[in-house]
Design a binder for these strands. Structure first.
Length: 490
RNA sequence: CGGGGUAUAGUACAGUCCGGUUAGUAUGCUUGGUUUGGGACCAAGAGGUCACAGGUUCGAAUCCUGUUACCCCGACCA
């Protein structure tokens, strides 16, 4: 296996090589679409299971809506179509036939659809068209649905996990009787996302509200969680939208209130995608390969035997199986790798590349002393410990690693977050891609676009926890009451 | 979608400028043996319509035209 390009040498090449070499995903025969390989998919499944249980715990249910959306649905909400029109895949025909020239198959021109179908880039339109049938009374509300699905956005430039033409995600779509309730829902879900990011992915995130310019197409407000990657760029990791009555009005979804009057329904939508895989990789991994937080690792512990004779192997296997059993009893996933085609050194490198949090090695020396070597992936340190209570030790160590990864990422973010008060300093920080920048901004789209044009930095969000602070906009000098979070973003 | 680069064995590359026997090298794979505490060694073997489609030529990986995909830099985005 070739050595990885170092992060320092070329961060983006490091990322690409890591994704492929760690067996997470690879490019496919289809432009912009990836194959998620079993190891990568196992991590995604862990994310799904955890998120799904968090959605259920907050009262949501799963449903499924069609992949195809009639073209006419898109013209019903003006800003929505504007946001997605440029990147839609369109189905125009429903049949192939043999090429009359005998060269394979061609699209049958007689099989043209009356109305083209759009492959969903997101499902608001088809879902609100459906909700119209479901909602008549305040008693039918709220509707709290989520769907796990694939969507297609015809992106010009793609990268594995970070931006692919087809990606997997979940999209929650809720309907409410009042604006307050819908707003609460949108806030609740951004909190679920940040809880998930911090406590499971071990990624510290900044919660906040998007500027008008960065808002979801069709939303009144977009809440976001923003994470900082090791190269100093921000990654938008999840969003939750307060949609107001825009989609209810577009699809004519009204309900009768208790007092007999009617009103349009209030809406939210929220989603996270396989992009979280990219966030996970870029937050924790190092030049040796992937680093996985234990809660997301498909294999949490690997045991490698080191032996010269069959007798030694038999003795080690017996001990290793006992450890495996004890760990599994604690709900820890363990692999015992007694494959004899590779040497231990090869395996060590391999499991580091794959990001296995804890590695146990046992050889003749350990048999004699009743010990085992414990190596942790996050710090790359090893120690030799007695076998006694090793299961409790490892269980503890996994928790410790989970915590350490979060603390490490948080310390990195703290080190790379700068309060900036002049445009000169701002430009300098942005030029070096130093990280998050907290600066005063006058709140206008005009200023935001000027800054973006001149520096490529964007307003990532106005953090929820930004303290009230009088200041002046770094660009326009106009008064500002809060600092906004700026960064170069993915 | 604009600018630049690349496409040859599973992978990474050489060969292309200047056309000419059987297209090489490393690694990986298979078999046998020696090894095994940080990416082992020896021996034998398998593996290629040189991205695709046309064209020039006695002859094309090599020259010409077109297409497609990937990588880097921009604009767009979860």
């Amino acid at each position: 296996m070739a050595k990885l390009t170092s992060r320092k040498e070329n961060y983006s090449q490091w990322y690409n090589e890591l994704v492929v070499q760690a067996n997470l995903a690879e490019t496919s025969a289809v432009r912009g679409c990836m194959v998620i390989k079993p190891y990568g998919y196992a991590i995604w499944e862990k994310m799904q299971h955890q998120l799904d249980s968090m959605f259920k715990a907050t009262g949501h249910v799963n449903a499924y809506f069609p992949l195809f959306i009639p073209k006419s649905f898109f013209s019903k909400e003006a800003s929505h179509v504007e946001g997605f029109a440029k990147e839609c895949a369109v189905v125009t025909h429903y049949r192939l036939k043999n090429d009359p020239d005998g060269k394979g198959v061609v699209v049958d021109p007689d099989a043209k659809l009356e109305e083209e179908l759009i492959v969903r880039p997101t499902s608001e339109t088809i879902i609100w068209n459906t909700y119209k049938k479901w909602v008549h009374s305040y008693r039918d509300l709220p509707i709290l649905c989520n769907q796990w699905a694939n969507v297609v956005r015809w992106e010009m430039r793609t990268r594995l996990f970070l931006r692919t033409a087809e990606f997997l995600w979940q999209e929650g779509h809720t309907a409410h009787a009042t604006a307050e309730e819908a707003r609460e829902e949108a806030e609740k879900m951004i909190n679920v996302y940040s809880d998930f990011a911090e406590n499971f992915l071990a990624i510290p995130v900044i919660k906040g509200v998007k500027s008008a310019n960065e808002r979801f197409a069709g939303a009144l407000d977009t809440y976001t969680i923003e994470a900082l990657m090791q190269d100093g760029k921000a990654l938008q990791s999840g969003t939750s939208h307060f949609l107001g009555q825009n989609f209810a009005k577009a699809f004519d979804v009204t309900f009768t209130k208790k007092d007999g009057t009617t009103d349009y329904v209030w809406a939210t939508s929220w989603g996270v995608s396989t992009r979280l895989m990219g966030a996970l990789i870029m937050t924790h991994s190092d030049d040796n390969g992937l680093v996985l937080p234990p809660k997301l690792a498909p294999i949490q512990v690997v045991i490698v035997p080191i032996y010269k004779t069959d007798e030694q192997l038999a003795a080690i296997t017996e001990k290793a199986q006992a450890i495996k059993k004890a760990l599994e009893a604690k709900g820890i996933t363990v692999e015992y790798d007694d494959d004899d085609t590779q040497k231990p050194g090869w395996k060590f490198a391999e499991y580091e590349l794959k990001g296995i949090p804890v590695r146990l090695a046992m050889g003749a020396r350990d048999l004699e002393n009743g010990t085992v070597e414990v190596a942790r992936r996050d710090t790359l340190t090893k120690e030799t410990l007695p076998l006694e209570n090793i299961d409790a030790y490892v269980e503890n160590l996994l928790n410790e690693i989970q915590k350490n990864l979060f603390e490490k990422a948080k310390a990195f973010r703290t080190e790379h977050t700068y309060k900036v008060d002049t445009y000169e300093e701002f430009k300098e920080r942005v030029k070096n891609c130093d990280g998050f920048i907290l600066a005063h901004w006058d709140g206008t789209t005009e200023t935001e676009e000027k800054i973006k044009e001149e520096t490529k930095a964007t307003v990532r969000c106005i953090p929820f926890d930004a303290p009230d602070e009088e200041g002046t906009c770094i660009y326009s000098g106009k008064p500002s009451h809060k600092r906004a979070l700026f960064a170069i973003s993915y």
